[in-house]
Design a protein around this nucleic acid. Sequence first.
DNA 1: TTGTAAGCGTTATCAC
DNA 2: GTGATAACGCTTACAA
Lengths: 344, 344
Amino acid sequence: MLNGRTPSVKDVAAAAGVSLGTVSNVMNRPEVVSARTRERVERAMSELGFVRNESARQLRAGTSRTLAYVMLDGTNPFFHDVAQGIELAAEDADLSLFICNSNSRATREEVHLDRLLQQRVQGILITPVDPAAPHLDELTRRGVPMVIVDRVRNADSCCSVSVDDVLGGRIGVEHLAELGHERVAFVGGPDSLGQVRERLQGAREVWESLGHDPDNLIYLPTEALTVAEGRSAGERLAGLPARRRPTAAFCANDLLALGLLQQSIGAGLRVPDDLAIVGFDDIEFAAAAAVPLTSVRQPRQELGRAAAQLVLDEATNPNHNHQQLQFQPELVARASTVRRARSL
Amino acid sequence: MLNGRTPSVKDVAAAAGVSLGTVSNVMNRPEVVSARTRERVERAMSELGFVRNESARQLRAGTSRTLAYVMLDGTNPFFHDVAQGIELAAEDADLSLFICNSNSRATREEVHLDRLLQQRVQGILITPVDPAAPHLDELTRRGVPMVIVDRVRNADSCCSVSVDDVLGGRIGVEHLAELGHERVAFVGGPDSLGQVRERLQGAREVWESLGHDPDNLIYLPTEALTVAEGRSAGERLAGLPARRRPTAAFCANDLLALGLLQQSIGAGLRVPDDLAIVGFDDIEFAAAAAVPLTSVRQPRQELGRAAAQLVLDEATNPNHNHQQLQFQPELVARASTVRRARSL
DNA sequence: TTGTAAGCGTTATCAC
DNA sequence: GTGATAACGCTTACAA
């Protein structure tokens, strides 16, 4: 195998007794080369174990075959589902995918973006720590196709894909109201997160529109959207005087809901009898909880898939227009709110 | 900004009024260039928004700055924790990381490996669908540094990082035996998975060594290591005649345990009073379950980190020797086996 | 249909 | 300390 060196087109050409350009043609425009030569070249390739050098290809062609997704929080399965959707779309387009994780840290996000810029990726999908961060503008200024995933950014500066969080908030609380709950907690935070604010807004809107007293929608703020914060919210909830204690909780995401569920059951509450719980996202583990969790479902994979398609359009279509895609969330009712769980 | 084109070293050189080689020196051996010129060059770089083209660098340098991890199952958080460990190590070494997901499909694994070969990644970490697959030999034959993660391969053909699964099996069942359980179920499968076999083996060894009747260690095979299969095992378990019904179950991973927990609680069993449950892996969601799950902990991030270090050694150290690293699992006791849960 | 040659952006080797 | 120059492996005009 050529004394260690990995074979190049030149080696293939020599082995097949053709010129280097012909080998390239076999790879890139096979229709232009005669069946016989093509066959010879292909045999030489497999005999030598030729593998095209993507860096060289990219350098010359000026275009990379790689997409990237910078996810916000690797400990939340939600983002992996989004990533999975992106990967499927990338696969369809015969593209590779870099997956990075900013872990909610702006500095790590910047490091990743910088690296991706160096790699000259074709497009970047990102769930940013802060949608208003200036280093995102930097990308657009550089002309790198970018799509914001599960967040929105000041309109038409770039594409984004998200779900209607206000609607999601409405759906969740409406469900609880329909079940007859008169005092409901909204668990979520920090309210620097636009999504939390919007879900809360939707929750309040529908609560009041149904004629309930605003004071009976109790806001339990959390410091993050994590299981631990869900537990802590549960403790605060248990500490409320009985007269003010909600009979149901709507959580801004499933991790919170899972934590709340755990704390509540540990404290001897029955779910949903003593406390009904609704989550948000509908991650796999929501359905797998001891008491399967009712949740406002986001089309996670679809989000990713759509984002990938948008970024590809921006990368390849000269007439591309930025668009703000918005999906509709939907309720998935399970045992954490309704006594007779539907079968899984 | 140079009429659209992204600036190259040449442009920077022109702007700074130096030669192209000097610019390169500023980036790669700054000590060799005078403070004044360096400053001039650096200003030119930032004014032009220069970003080094990694493809060109890689082509010329002959070495890429990228690692890759091909994970087995994106729906299992275990692998994401491993990936996280790898990413941290990669970050330390200033390397990028490709994360791919074979989804337990050999064909997808091959597609990914092929792409990674084209990218000339510096090393590949992989949890293979089948550790004996010939396309893995192919990689070693090509001289691509490779480390098997959480599996083992026929000894010294390559490095691997794993945990002692036999010991893990022993630990889990020993814990249950110590708690006084006399009939224990082992839930896991398919037994084509070496890990399942080894965990079962460890379980049997310790069970018998403690003087228990082998018949009282009941093997409940599953078709996969998933939540759904855990539920199904729970149903089978409930169907056993009371005299033969185990009072505890040891599951080959946490997803199974979570499924079993859900099914059991849904059926009105109390955990751990009626059924104690032990999982394996200690994923985050084990601790977050309604009844926090006792689990045999694998050092997930450490696994990834160590694997990355091995692959880097293979890539850079000419005296590299393949090694089979094995970590020790440890028990994390929680409420699913012991009545008074320790605080989290 | 095939071959030749220029050039992508970088790094490294050599003179100066 | 700095500046030409060749080379990395590939694609793509263009010439034969």
